[in-house]
Amino acid sequence: MAADILLAIVLLAVDAVASLIASYKGMDAAGYAFFDTGADHSTVSMTRPAVYVAVVGVLVLAVALLAYKSQAFVTMCAQTLAGLALVLISGIAQANQYHEDHPPTPESGYSGPQSQCRSGGDNSECHGS
């Protein structure tokens, strides 16, 4: 039991480091300039870093499956929670990026009163007034 708990703690630390490295590599591949203070980061897409983190999450879930087969239940639970968290975070990042890339179409603005005037004269010439 103690070995199972120790393995769970070590693997969670490895998962954290792997997800940080995946985020860094994904942002670097997406063109994010880390040390350029004047760079415009508004055009950098977070799709690639999210995919990298999702891959790490799937690998963590695969380790959870191996832990289940080895009957290391504490490790399995910890790895399952960590893997699901990484996949969920990646999915949320993908959804946010999609909504940022595809903003809703603007609705038509206010076009004034809906009653029609016959000749543009006073109120007696307009319907509904």
Rank of each mutant, 00 (worst) to 15 (best):
M1K: 12
A2W: 02
A3L: 13
D4P: 01
D4A: 12
D4Q: 04
I5V: 13
L6N: 13
L7G: 09
I9D: 10
V10C: 05
V10A: 14
V10Y: 12
L11I: 00
L12C: 08
V14A: 15
V14S: 10
D15P: 00
V17R: 09
S19P: 00
S19A: 14
L20K: 07
L20N: 05
I21E: 07
I21R: 10
A22R: 02
A22S: 05
S23N: 10
S23R: 09
S23C: 05
Y24L: 10
K25V: 13
D28M: 04
D28H: 08
D28Y: 02
A30T: 11
Y32V: 09
A33R: 06
F34K: 02
F34T: 01
F34Q: 00
D36F: 04
G38A: 06
D40A: 01
D40W: 05
D40R: 04
H41Q: 02
H41F: 02
H41Y: 02
V44Q: 01
P49Q: 09
P49G: 07
P49E: 14
A50V: 00
V51K: 13
Y52E: 14
Y52M: 15
Y52T: 01
Y52V: 01
Y52P: 00
A54C: 08
A54D: 07
V55S: 11
G57Y: 10
G57C: 07
G57K: 05
V58W: 04
L59H: 03
L59V: 08
L59C: 13
L59T: 03
V60W: 01
A62M: 13
A62K: 02
L65I: 06
L66H: 02
A67C: 09
A67P: 03
A67V: 00
Y68A: 09
K69L: 15
S70A: 15
S70I: 00
Q71K: 14
Q71A: 14
Q71D: 15
A72L: 15
A72S: 08
V74E: 11
V74I: 15
T75R: 01
T75V: 03
T75Q: 02
M76L: 12
M76I: 00
C77E: 13
A78Y: 08
A78G: 06
A78K: 03
Q79G: 08
Q79S: 12
T80N: 03
A82V: 06
G83E: 03
G83I: 00
A85Q: 10
A85N: 13
S90F: 07
S90Q: 09
I92V: 15
A93E: 09
Q94C: 05
Y98T: 14
H99K: 14
H99C: 06
D101E: 13
D101T: 15
H102P: 04
H102A: 05
P104F: 00
E107F: 10
S108C: 10
G109S: 12
G112Q: 09
Q114I: 11
S115Q: 11
Q116G: 04
Q116H: 11
C117A: 10
C117H: 06
C117Q: 07
S119L: 08
S119R: 11
G121Y: 05
D122Y: 15
S124N: 14
E125G: 11
E125M: 03
S129G: 01
S129K: 12
